[in-house]
Amino acid sequence: MVTIASRLVPPRSMLVAGLIALILLAATASLMLGAVSLAPARIFAALAGRGDPIATAILFDLRMPRTILGLVVGAMLGLAGAALQGYLRNPLAEPSVLGASNAAALGAVCAIYFGLAELHPVMLPLLAILTGLGALALLFALAGRSESPLTLILAGIAVATLASAAISLSLNLSPNPFAAMEIMAWLMGSIENRSFHHVWVALPCIAVGAALLLADGRALDALTLGEDGARALGADLRVTRLRLLLGVAIGVGGAVAVSGSIGFVGLIVPHLIRPLTDRSPSAILLPSALGGAALLTLADIGVRLIPSNVELKLGVVTAFLGVPVFLVYLMRERRLW
């Protein structure tokens, strides 16, 4: 009995504990490292309110919001990727597959294009979240009540294509090269120079989105046996789908709203986590959120440390990270490794 109990309930606590330790390490490093490095003693002093003004300013105005955003955006992308791969039963699914990220990006681009972003720092993320929700409504209208994952993917591609076409249009029509540059820079994805304004916009969205996605775990497990199998195991797939779509639209919309499009995190994190679990969709949800948080924070530290004239964009670094992971995956599929 003991043997089966321990094998049926995988040593998830170990994995989760290990990932939390990794997150703590990454977050501490993220607070310490940058153009000016802060020793732990100065950080603690600033946290306690007894720090020197420079350390306090760097910590609270620059590093802290940046670190928090790295953690929550990474967690949301990792979780959304894991949930979507489980729901669509497709290991290549990622947060952008339903068009949520492109739509949110379109909202942000509109904010830049029409100059709304200069009115207040939260205008851009708010507009991004609104277009993300608008895209969700469009997705529902297109996919209808069908429960098939294929219909949903097709509708998602339609929404994503429409959004990216509109983004291209804005680049095409942009009045001067500087506006186009600004849009391009935002699209590449970054969490540089973000303030607590951004944290307060993103955090609630991500909390709601993550809660919705985590609640789908059991239904995702049941879907391992196909749609009929899942429903016969008591899963109400309409509820599952509603939670999934809302969770992705709100959570990923909120994340993209503050960070721009950061690709590949949602795609590769579930692949890195899956071999460490029993491979059931529910078992990778929480660890993928933790792994995404750690990965994005580490990538963001890399952005700061890699010497270059212009600071690299986070989305560029994650895209390069995605390539080796997929090569390994490909080689395993072809049994070359």
Partner: peptide
């Protein structure tokens, strides 16, 4: 049709039957 989307162990697969 023996549908099974993820490479679960037999034990984990059988445990899905307890979901209800």
């Amino acid at each position: 049709g023996q549908l099974l989307h993820w490479p679960l162990t037999v034990e984990r697969l059988v445990a899905l039957g307890r979901l209800p």
